[in-house]
């Protein structure tokens, strides 16, 4: 099968590869990008463990998008969240609130949560549950994920809270 050149920015870094046109974005990120935090779980766009952010804050399911469709675009994955060893407020909140168990859904869940807060900085519990309904979790039953997003929202809306946490 014919290969095509694909180039995209993943977490600010240009990744280029010659791949078959049917190669999925998820596989491009994992194999060409070497970033395995983006997982694959269902092959049918149902589970959301492959969620990444496209061109800023648009969550997309990278197992349902071809790598060529992301050619020239910017992708954000879980690996970009922690900066210099310091966890992103969303990561910190998932840790504090026990919002993960096996960890398989966690990267996609956090990226969807970040996209949700970008759109709606103060979501209600129902809005959080609605906003995350494209990301399945088998372990947590979602209670603690909701609490984590609430904590992250509070910290991200009040930068002084985040600063205090550094002390």
């Amino acid at each position: 099968m014919n290969e095509v050149n694909v180039s995209m920015k993943i977490n600010g870094k240009t990744v280029t590869g010659s791949v078959e046109s049917r190669v999925l974005l998820a596989h491009f990120i994992r194999e060409q990008g070497g970033l395995t935090g983006t997982h694959v779980g269902c092959d049918s766009s149902s589970c959301g463990v492959c969620t990444v952010l496209l061109d800023g804050y648009t969550p997309v399911k990278s197992c349902t998008m071809y790598a060529v469709m992301a050619d020239g675009h910017e992708i954000t994955t879980v690996e970009s969240l922690a900066v210099g060893g310091k966890l992103h407020p969303m990561q910190q909140a998932f840790w504090d609130q026990h919002g993960l168990q096996c960890g398989y859904c966690t990267p996609g869940m956090m990226l969807s949560s970040i996209a949700l807060l970008k759109q709606n900085p103060n979501p209600t519990e129902h809005e959080i549950r609605e906003g995350l309904s494209g990301n399945l979790c088998r372990c947590t039953g979602y209670n603690n994920i909701v609490k984590a997003v609430q904590q992250a929202a509070q910290v991200m809306n009040q930068p002084e809270l985040a600063a205090a946490a550094d002390d």
Binding site: G37, A82, Q91, M110
Partner: peptide, 19 residues
């Protein structure tokens, strides 16, 4: 106690079979 295993999962550094 907060979970000791979480930092790797939170940062996408879990080591699952397909990784």
């Amino acid at each position: 106690m907060k979970r000791k295993e979480d930092p790797r999962f939170l940062q996408g550094k879990g080591n699952y079979i397909d990784d």
